[in-house]
Design a protein around this nucleic acid. Structure first.
Lengths: 143, 143
DNA sequence: TTCCGTGCAAACAATTTGCAATAGA
DNA sequence: TCTATTGCAAATTGTTTGCACGGAA
């Protein structure tokens, strides 16, 4: 499935008139592997295991391309660099400000809030660009 | 009330063993004025109207101090620099990704979501560090 | 007088960009 | 071939830091 995701992303690039290069293939496969949310640096580490010559700027450019095609997204979690993932399903990110753990939750947990805010202000929530912060179950207990 | 807020902030600094300088007074008054969320640069513009000699680094250090005292906060809205405000009441920020408008909403709109998430995952939401993104009423209509 | 606060300039981290060389289609 | 992609190094943006001096308490 990670492989499928990668193939789909490559197909989208091709469909858009883009070229498939070995750099792009390596980057996309690294991003499709695992369901985590790597920073560009972390992604680079992964890519460099097998393709040590891929330039950082290329990774930035590739990930930007994916975002323009609507198949890649970045989220801001805490301070520091943004984190990237391929689409599949939209989800929200709960980030523990104590231990840094990231919990993915389905996007529809926001539906009641969405309706409430839309009714009260007309504002249409589309909140996947920023994470929700708080304290995870484990850290809450410790405190 | 803006003035009260400023005085309270200064009192908190003094109570903490900090010194009251004219730079700090100017910065805090500029931040207390208006209920917007200026970036450090915007805050600097305001301060420089009357005190052109205040250094940027001093502004960074002052807002950091306010944050350490628990009376100042920064939020991330879209890309670019963080935005600062004095406490008063905790609120959420809805940022329109089309026009950049910022809408403040009371923190308790999150209560239902809070309960739902706590029940499902044990995660305790404390989301005021990131804004909620979406499209404001005006921009939603245009689209 | 005693440190705390400040200016200044340099260091920093994350990211973007210009341009010539290279390699997909 | 023809143009998109890449490498490289320099530029940008937002923010932090070290250090010597000057001013609150």
């Amino acid at each position: 499935m990670a492989h499928d995701r990668a193939e789909r992303a490559l197909a989208a690039i091709r469909a858009n008139g883009g070229r498939i290069t070995s750099d792009r293939r390596a980057i996309i496969e690294a991003l499709a592997t695992g369901s985590d949310h790597p920073t560009v640096e972390e992604l680079a580490e992964r890519v460099w295991k097998r393709h040590p010559d891929v330039n950082l700027a290329t990774i930035y450019r590739t990930v930007e391309l994916l975002e323009n095609l609507g198949i890649g997204f970045h989220v801001h979690m805490g301070h520091g660099p943004s984190r990237w993932h391929l689409s599949d399903e939209v989800h929200q990110h709960l980030v523990c400000s104590a231990c840094g753990a990231v919990l993915d939750v389905p996007d529809d947990v926001l539906d009641p809030l969405r309706e409430q805010i839309a009714a009260a202000t007309g504002f249409v929530l589309d909140a996947h660009h920023f994470s929700l912060t708080g304290t995870c179950a484990t850290c809450s207990k410790v405190a």
